[in-house]
Design a protein around this nucleic acid. Structure first.
Lengths: 327, 327
DNA sequence: GTGAAAGCGCTAACAT
DNA sequence: ATGTTAGCGCTTTCAC
């Protein structure tokens, strides 16, 4: 592996000049720049990121801290992670994975290693001790999700208000007025709390009678909703990836069908929705976009670019065949 | 952040001795060891992994190279990744994510940065240029999956022979003799090729008539199989995550049911299988185990531990209600 | 068993 | 505009 020294020698300049050219950190004559670039190309030189990190006190490595148990983005977790890693690389950073299970100590030890410049924290809870640990460490960080009071914290999240409003719009446009909302049983879970709040507020604003239900956060779920649900509403929005199949099954067993007897809108990936019969109308979380935005927000902060206002991104509605005009 | 110097000073020893204690790289008197350890604890010292990496010429960072498009492990990709990261950390390594789309150059540039000691390559194809790029680079690597001729390459993969045999056993035990096998349309895709070969061989050995079918590698899929499938077999194994729902739907539309008219065994996660009605008998890929094994195989290689023979891990059969005794 | 000193390959003052 | 030089925080000979 060639080093700056080899490049400098070959180009007939000092190692400082090589560094200036590589980093654009100081003005350099076009002529010498070219000689350096030629030497770099001829030698197939790549700078050693480790040495650079040590000398510059910037590792250009970010950590993606995520609990191993929960899967907030469900089917879009992979998209999120991949997109975060791509965004990092696009700006010259690397992303390391930190599966974090415990709260304070683990993250503290990891940070102590001095390997990363900042942390992207996934699956942020309303009251999250990891956020406190990060804040105490002084390491820059960006949150995916929000704590109870996220004011002043760098974060990106789903825009639950918009997402629920869009879903309601879709159903109301089809003539529905009795629209239930089903979440997963997860007390204190941010997305549940925020989407329920949005639903309640929107119902009030629009003069709709709210019907909030819950079911299990894992499959199978939703089948038990059935007697109650179809008696009281003509449409349902499911903020629970697993519930849709249960609802369809429960309905079928009662001799009823979608969308004739009930319109179903599920917050899940279109891929998942396509598995159902009929293919579901879905609203999918912006996993990839959040991954990218979160990383950019963190890097902006690291590089002293603008304060980077929190971004809230709505889910995207993809019409399927499980929603139809009210009978 | 305290450094070795601070520790050395406080313990009244040289920085070399501190290093010896921290790494166990040289014998040290119990007494001085204790003094050093005390100083470490008092100062809350963590060694700087970056500096250690530069000086020792071992970064203790591994890359997980994965294509962004394909999703071999489907629903278990997240498990795989998480488990790989955990295994790495358990042995004192970090795992960086490298979403790789192009073939040679990208991986070459990344390796040139000198950030990683080795690479775990996911989604290995039968003929994979990335493997050649890695081999040419001289960087140690481990493959998840196998090339056409994996002899001599460090790799871990699903044991398709065992997995298909176990599935056949399950169905044959239930009295089935006509058992179809459905894969996803993906020419040259390792898992498809190897599982099909296993199916053919096993059918021959057991005197069964093979029926191989394909359908789309994305949802919706499988509905089109229906007239043909149920006329010719009493059971089907689906090596296609998306097909199961289509098969169920197709069957229902024909007024038929599972498992009465057809037994269905799907190679997917039990979570996914639980969504179906009836809950599917599934065989799930050992995503987490492969992630961990792959990382260990790579680290063993890096640390000069035994040659680490290739490990093939079978899928795990989880009986559901979609398979039953042949009518 | 312990210490002194020479780097690892780079960046970033500070000179010139 | 370019060069000299002093580190970044650690590991690792080589002496003692």
């Amino acid at each position: 592996m060639p080093t700056v020294r080899d490049v400098a020698e070959r180009a007939g300049v000092s190692i400082a000049t090589v560094s200036f050219v590589l980093n654009g950190s100081k003005p350099v004559t076009p002529a010498t720049r070219q000689r350096v670039e030629a030497a770099v190309a001829e030698l197939g030189y790549h700078r050693n990121e480790l040495a650079r990190a040590l000398a510059s006190r910037k590792t250009r490595i970010l950590a993606l801290a995520h609990p191993t148990a929960e899967h907030r983005f469900g089917s879009s977790t992979t998209d999120f992670i991949t997109s975060a890693a791509r965004a990092a690389r696009a700006r010259g950073y690397h992303l390391v994975l930190w599966p974090i299970d415990t709260d304070g100590q683990e993250i503290h030890d990891l940070l102590g290693q001095g390997l990363v410049d900042g942390v992207v924290l996934m699956e942020v809870k309303l009251d999250d001790p990891r956020v406190d640990a990060l804040a105490a460490s002084g390491t820059p960080y960006a949150l995916i999700g929000r704590t109870r009071d996220p004011a002043g914290l760098v974060h990106v999240d789903i825009d639950f208000d918009r997402s629920v409003a869009d879903a309601l719009d879709h159903l109301q446009d089809l003539g529905h007025r009795e629209i239930a909302f089903v979440t997963a049983e997860r007390p204190g879970y941010g997305p549940k709390v925020r989407s329920e709040a949005a639903y309640r507020r929107l119902c009030a604003e629009r003069g709709l009678e709210p019907l909030l239900l819950e079911c299990a956060p894992t499959a199978p779920a939703g089948q038990g909703l059935m007697p109650r649900l179809v008696e009281r509403v003509t449409a349902v929005m499911l903020m629970n990836e697993y519930a849709a199949f249960g609802v369809l099954t429960g309905l079928a067993r009662a001799g009823l069908g979608v969308p004739d007897d009930l319109s179903v809108l599920s917050f899940t990936s279109p891929d998942m929705g396509a598995l159902a019969d009929p293919p579901l109308t879905t609203s999918h979380s912006p996993g990839a976009e959040l991954g990218s935005l979160g990383v950019h927000a963190l890097i902006d902060q690291l590089e002293g670019i603008e304060p980077s206002a929190p971004r809230l991104v709505p889910c995207t509605l993809v019409p399927g065949q499980s929603t139809a005009r009210r009978p």
